[in-house]
Structures are given as C-alpha cells and as structure tokens.
Computed example of a mutant assay.
Amino acid sequence: MSKPVTDLIHHPYVPPAGFAAPQPGVFKASTVIFPNVAAIRARDWKHKTGYTYGLHGTPTTFMLEERIAALEGGSQCVLVPSGLAAIAAVNLALLKSGDEVLLPDNAYGPSKALAEAELKGWGIRYALYDPMDPADLQARIGPGTKLVWLEAPGSVTMEFAPLAHLAQVCRQRGVTTALDNTWGAGLAFNGFDLGRGDRFLAGSGADIVVQALTKYPSGGGDVLMGSVVTRDDALHQKIKLTHMRLGFGVGANDVEAVLRSLPSIEVRYRAHDRSARALAGWLQSRPEIAQLLHPAFPSSPGHEHWRALCGEDGMAAGLFSVVFDARYGSARVDAFCDALKLFKLGYSWAGPISLVVPYDIPSMRRAWPHKGTLVRFSVGLEDVEDLRADLEQAMGALRG
C-alpha cells in the first residue's frame, strides 16, 4: 500500500478533453513526461511536432510563437527573454569570427553596445552606416559583411529610414537583413514586405524580424520578452538551434500575460498613436520647441519614407521626441522633466503610463544637427487633455 504523498504525486486523474475558453491554458514545465522510450527517441522539438523539454516549448509558448509569427507576417518564431536577447540570438546564430555586421547609426543603444563589446571581443567586426542614405550602406558592404540590421524609426531620434531601399541594397549584395520592428509592432507595416504599390514585390523586406514583446504586444509595462520571426525554414532552424544552445527560455506566466494582451494590441496601438499625435502637434506649435521628431509629421526627418511605407493615413505608434530651443540648457530641461506629474521618468514605452526621458544625443550619434536638448515622450493611455495640461504646467519650470 503506497503512502498518501505518493498517491498525491502519481494520482491518475486526467481532466476530460474539450474545454474551451477565450484564453488558452497555461502549461508550466521543465520536465515533460513521455509515454514510453520510443516516444523519447521519436519526438522532434525543432518542428513543433512534439514536446521534449520545457525549454524547447510547451503548448503555451507554441501558441504565442504562432500568433506572433502571424502578426509579423512570418511563418516561424522563437521567443527569448527580452528584445535585446532577440538581437543577440540573431547575431550569434549568423556571425562568426572574421565576419562583419553593419548597424544603423541611430540603432537601439544596447545593440550597438553588444557589437562594441561582446561581438568585437569574439572577433566579429562591426561598423555603422547612415540609415538615411542607401548609397552609404552600399559603400560599406564588404566581402566579410554577413548581416545588416535595419530599424525604423531610429531609436530616440526617430528618423524614418528608406527601409525598402536599404533592404534592396542588401538583397542585391546577397547579405542577410534583420529588422528591429518593435516600433511598428507588426501593425504599422510588414517587415517582410516593405514595398507599397508595384515598385517592390512581396518578400522585398527583411529576412528576419525581431521585436521586443515587452512593448506593444505586452502593453502593461510588466513583462520582458522578445521574438525572432522568419519566413525561411533553413534560417529559422539555424536561429532555433542557437536559441537552444544559449538556453533562452521564457516563463509561462509572462507568456500568458502577452497572450492575454495580444487581442487588444491594435486598439491600444491606435489609441497611443492618436494621443501622441495630438500632443506632438501641440508641442510643435510651442516657442520652447525647436524641432519635433515624429515620423507622421512632415517636418520630421524621413517623413516621406514613413508615408510611402505606411500610407497617408498609416499608423505611427505612441512615441516621439522634441528638441528644446538651445536657449534652454540641459539643467532647465531636466527641471521641466522633473516637474511633470503624469509623465513619469522611466525607460521603455507602450505601457498605460506616459513616460519621459531626456537624452544627451551628441554622445550617442556621430553627427547631430541640433543644438538643444532632446526629450523623448512615450504617450500612455491617460486622457490626452490631462497630459497636455501636465506638459503646460511643466513649462513653467523650464522657463525658470
């Protein structure tokens, strides 16, 4: 007669099949149970035909991978612990000592830091190119160039690059491209099909699309996760094997949170976009502001590229930056940020709470034409008039 604790652990009850609800079930596992040795030897985790170990996938992670792949217009996806981990996974899967990777000068800062430290230390060269000039990219691609990163708009400074032209340059030179599509979120444009009309055909975009699911897919400011999406199975398998060897895993509760938020992503994206445009337009009219950086506004660098790709009435997320007039020094701009009440000081974006961060752009860019201090705003889901009033009252601290 077995003891009660053994009976508890090995209880034979299995719930009946057929339960359906709006949200999928959450499966947490490191160990996966096999019915027999033959199943252990036969199961293939690489193609989602079975389960072998929690790190290689559960019904919960497979569900999110399939949905993110559909959102991005791809066919395969792997999940990683953060957006930066997605960038790292792609670099490590495709690059080896002696190779070169090219990054846009306005790339996400930690991506540049990864190239400067780890990749350089492993014998992988990197160089920066001007993302607004396809000819500059063309000139920098050499025999050792194996990967080119694309990003639009640029991190913090928000220039919108001619992505289709950049991808075309790489395609003609036979170089793999990876796009950070966190801003577009699979909604503003399709990273795999970057053309509009008949100038660029389907498949004219990037070979790989990564996204920080931390942002719009999660939407709550409480999850760290990233994704790597592909259309080519051979490329996917290369990334998936590197993903396995790196031991990248994501928690089931975090996956559940993203699955729960995902159905409302477009509604939230449009709400962020609408409020951001209202506030950006108001700030642009203010005498304290020297430059608005928002792709949907004609005065912003690369606006014509955004319009060509996303459409005249296209979406543009809830993120923008402004450059304050040079007569306001960085200390005054810091005082403005400190005086904000609804806008909180904090990194990241796409959550319900509006955020603000001042940046020292000359230390981040090779060439920066503006003299004033840049401040980036992430517009949340608060009432837009309340946010406008918050900005207006903080102008008093700016003026001193």
Results as ranks from 00 to 15, higher is better:
P4D: 13
L8P: 00
H11E: 10
P22V: 01
V32Q: 09
I33R: 11
F34T: 04
A39V: 05
A39C: 06
R41C: 05
W45Q: 03
T49F: 10
H56D: 10
H56R: 11
F62M: 15
E66T: 11
R67M: 14
E72Y: 11
Q76C: 13
Q76M: 10
C77E: 03
L79G: 00
V80T: 15
V80N: 03
S82P: 07
A85Y: 03
V90F: 02
N91D: 15
N91E: 12
L92D: 07
L92S: 04
L94S: 05
L95E: 02
K96V: 10
D99S: 09
E100M: 12
N106G: 08
A107M: 13
A113V: 14
A113C: 07
L114N: 04
L128D: 03
D130T: 07
D133N: 14
A135D: 15
A135Q: 12
D136W: 13
A139G: 08
A139P: 01
I141P: 01
P143T: 05
L150P: 07
L150A: 01
E151K: 12
A152Q: 04
G154D: 00
V156Q: 06
V156T: 09
T157V: 15
F160A: 07
A161Q: 03
L163W: 04
L163K: 01
L166H: 04
V169E: 00
C170S: 13
L179V: 06
N181M: 14
T182F: 01
T182A: 02
W183L: 12
W183S: 14
A188M: 13
F189M: 10
D198L: 15
G205V: 07
V210F: 02
A212F: 04
A212H: 00
T214S: 14
P217M: 08
S218Q: 02
S218M: 02
V223L: 07
L224V: 04
M225L: 09
V229G: 08
V229N: 06
T230R: 05
D232G: 10
D233T: 12
D233C: 09
D233P: 12
A234Y: 13
H243R: 14
R245F: 13
L246I: 06
F248T: 03
G251A: 12
E256N: 11
V258M: 07
L262P: 09
S264Q: 14
E266C: 04
E266F: 03
R268S: 05
R270I: 10
R270D: 10
R274I: 02
S275K: 15
A280I: 05
Q284E: 14
I289L: 08
Q291F: 01
L292F: 11
L293I: 07
P295T: 12
P295A: 13
P301I: 06
L309Y: 02
C310N: 02
E312C: 04
D313L: 08
D313I: 04
G314S: 05
A317E: 01
L319Y: 10
F324T: 00
G329D: 14
R332Q: 15
L345Q: 15
L345F: 11
W349A: 13
W349Q: 05
R365E: 09
P369L: 09
H370Q: 11
T373K: 05
L374H: 00
S378K: 04
V379G: 01
G380V: 02
D383Q: 08
V384H: 00
L387Y: 00
R388C: 03
A389T: 06
E392P: 01
Q393D: 03
A394R: 02
A394D: 02
G396E: 12
A397F: 05
G400M: 00
G400N: 01
G400H: 00
